[in-house]
Amino acid sequence: MSITDLKLGEKAYIDSISGDSKLMKRLMALGCTEGTEVCLKNCAPFGDPLVINLRGCDFCIRKKDAKNISIKDNL
């Protein structure tokens, strides 16, 4: 399951991230590590990009990149 499977406003715990190495590095530096709580807050008018909340901050990320953030379970 990835973040993109959540409904708006739903939270989950991060399982792992994959994909582009630069993206991964940046995500991890922002605190997107295993076990961290993440929330899918919003999405742009055409469904892409998305807004996720990570450790208290909102970030926008493209759907294709968000697909690489896999989550453990819904809260």
């Binding site: 582009d20 630069k22 909102d58």
Partner: peptide
Amino acid sequence: EEPFIIEL
């Protein structure tokens, strides 16, 4: 491409 992660 540089990854697109922008803080709001």
